[in-house]
């Protein structure tokens, strides 16, 4: 066991400090030290995307980032999506389109889908499927997830215009 290092970060807009050993993943630090259990562990090796977060604006798998790498960085997790108790349009559309069953993959899909829509407000179906290829879901068969993202893109474009 390595000794712990103090890490100062910004998480969902707030200054957050945690102490973790050098070999601990950022996923584990966020879950067990910061208490953000929306960051899910599926595989732990970068394959499933359940642990997806945004790190300095880049989508990454937090299971293959070290906690100590986050020093001075800005992190966004699924917990940062809703604002003042109002769900993000992606979250609402996931519910409306029944895009989740067990839900373990959902936070990762939401974070990855948000990264896509931030970069491309009008993705076609194939762009959505490629952008979400790093997220695995064993329940839904993906179709409803794709529909929910398409519906969100449409809603957000409408809102952006009005």
């Amino acid at each position: 066991m390595s000794k712990s290092t103090l890490v100062s970060t910004t998480v969902n807009g707030d200054a957050v400090e945690f102490a973790c050993p050098a070999d601990e993943s950022l996923m584990t630090a966020l879950r067990d030290r910061v208490g953000l259990t929306g960051v899910k562990e599926g595989c732990g090796t970068g394959d499933c995307g359940a642990c997806s977060i945004s790190l300095d604006g880049r989508l990454v798998c937090s299971c293959i980032v070290l906690g100590v790498e986050a020093e001075g960085r800005s992190i966004e997790t699924v917990e940062g999506l809703s604002q003042n108790g109002v769900l993000h349009p992606l979250q609402q559309n996931f519910i409306d389109h029944a895009a989740l069953q067990c839900g373990i993959c959902t936070p990762g899909f939401l974070v990855a889908a948000k990264a896509l829509l931030d970069r491309n407000p009008n993705p076609d179906e194939s762009e959505i499927r490629y952008a979400l290829a790093g997220n695995l879901c064993r329940c839904t068969g993906y179709d409803k997830i794709v529909r929910a993202v398409q519906a969100t893109a449409k809603d957000m474009r409408k809102k952006g215009r009005s």
Partner: peptide, 26 residues
């Protein structure tokens, strides 16, 4: 050496490597 960690940290987590020192270039 640690760059993106998408190979190294997978190996670390799987116990394939047991580093004493990791040098992050970023």
């Amino acid at each position: 050496l640690l760059a993106g960690g998408t190979d190294l940290l997978v190996k670390l987590k799987m116990g394939i490597v047991e580093p004493d020192l990791v040098v992050d270039i970023k």
